[in-house]
Design a protein around this nucleic acid. Structure first.
Length: 291
DNA sequence: AAATTGCTCAACCGCGCGATA
DNA sequence: GTATCGCGCGGTTGAGCAATT
C-alpha cells in the first residue's frame, strides 16, 4: 500500500521497558490522554516507536489491567467466546474487564489450546483462519519458541547429533503443515471486530452484563438499537462440535461464521456461567450488532 | 550442580482498514 | 480517485524462568 514504516527504527530503543520509561509514558498519558501515538514518544521524551508505546500502555500500564490468575469463569468465557468469535482477541478481551487481547491470546495459545488437545479436540479448526501471506515459518506460539530455542542451542553445540526430530518438533511442524492446506486466499467477508466504546467498553460492558443491566449505555439511539436487536432471539446456538474442515475460510455469511468451530460443550461441563443464558444471548446480540 | 528442555508472556512485526489531505 | 497517515489487530518471536534430567 506504499505505506511508510511506522517509525524509522534508527536510534530507537527496543525490548523490555525500563521503569523509567514506564513512568515517562504513564505520566505523559495521564496528562495528555491517549492517542497521537506517532508523535507521543517524542513529546514524552521516549526513544521508542509510537507503536511500542501504545502496546506498552494498552497491555501493561493502563489502569485497571489485571495480571495473571485467569479464573475458571474467565477461562470458560474465553473458550466460549472463541467458539463464537474465533481469533478475535480484541473482541474477546472486550468481554473480560481488565484483560488484554494479548494476554488472552497468550492464554489461549499456551493453556487452552493444550487443554483442547488433551480433551481430544482438534484445535485446528479453531485457528484455521485464512492465513496471511506472511506466514513463513509457522509453528504454534509456544512450540515455535521452544523450537527456535532448541535450534539456537543446537547451532551452539555445533550440530551435535541431537536434531530436534527427536521429539518431533521442527519448524515445519506437521500440524501447521496441515493448516497450510487452508483454502486459497480468497476475499471472504469476515466481520471486522472493533471497539464500540459506548457498548463494548471494557469498563462497562461486562459489568453491565453480569449485573444484568442492559449493555446499551450509549444512550438514546444506541439504546433503541440494542433493544431492537435484543428483540431478536437467535433460534439456537450454533451446532455444537460442528468442526468444519474448511475452517473460518468457508464463512461466507454470518450464519456460517457463527456456526463454525464451536467447541463449547467440551469445557462447558463444570462452568458456572452456563446457567446465565441471558448473558450469552446478550453477547450474541451485541456481536450481531457489530455485523 | 550443571545441562537440557519446556513454558510463559512481553514485545515485535506486518498487514488491513478508516480517515484525511 | 488516489496516496498517505494513524491506528488496531492477529500472528510470531525470543528472553527469562521453572522443571526435569
Amino acid at each position: 500500500m506504499g505505506r511508510s514504516p511506522c517509525c524509522s527504527k534508527v536510534g530507537l530503543r527496543r525490548g523490555p521497558w525500563s521503569t523509567k520509561e514506564d513512568a515517562l509514558l504513564s505520566d505523559y498519558i495521564q496528562e495528555n490522554g491517549e492517542g497521537q501515538w506517532r508523535s507521543l514518544p517524542k513529546k514524552a521524551g521516549l526513544l521508542r516507536c509510537g507503536k511500542s508505546c501504545r502496546l506498552r500502555w494498552m497491555n501493561y500500564l493502563r489502569p485497571g489491567i489485571k495480571r495473571g490468575n485467569i479464573t475458571q469463569d474467565e477461562e470458560d468465557l474465553i473458550v466460549r467466546l472463541h467458539g463464537l468469535l474465533g481469533n478475535r482477541w480484541s473482541l474477546i478481551a472486550g468481554r473480560l474487564p481488565g484483560r488484554t487481547d494479548n494476554e488472552i491470546k497468550n492464554y489461549w495459545n499456551t493453556h487452552l489450546l493444550k487443554k483442547l488437545k488433551t480433551a481430544g479436540i482438534n484445535p485446528k479448526s479453531q485457528i484455521n483462519l485464512p492465513k496471511s501471506s506472511k506466514n513463513k515459518n509457522t509453528t504454534t506460539a509456544s512450540g515455535g519458541a521452544a523450537v527456535n530455542k532448541k535450534k539456537k542451542k543446537q547451532k551452539k553445540e555445533k550440530e551435535k547429533e541431537k536434531v530436534s526430530v527427536g521429539n518431533g518438533k521442527q519448524s515445519t511442524d506437521p500440524n501447521r503443515e496441515q493448516s497450510n492446506d487452508s483454502p486459497p486466499k480468497t476475499k471472504v467477508y469476515l466481520p471486522k471486530p472493533m471497539r464500540v466504546s459506548s457498548v463494548f467498553s471494557r469498563t462497562s460492558s461486562y459489568d453491565s452484563l453480569v449485573s444484568g443491566s442492559s449493555s446499551s449505555e450509549g444512550g438514546g439511539e444506541a439504546a433503541e438499537k440494542v433493544a431492537e436487536v435484543a428483540s431478536y432471539t437467535p433460534a439456537a446456538w450454533p451446532p455444537l462440535l460442528e468442526l468444519d474442515d474448511a475452517g473460518y475460510g468457508g464463512a461466507g455469511n454470518v450464519d456460517d461464521f457463527l456456526g463454525v468451530g464451536c467447541i463449547l460443550p467440551v469445557l462447558q461441563q463444570s462452568d458456572s456461567l452456563s446457567g446465565d443464558v441471558n448473558m450469552w444471548e446478550q453477547v450474541y446480540d451485541e456481536y450481531f450488532q457489530l455485523l
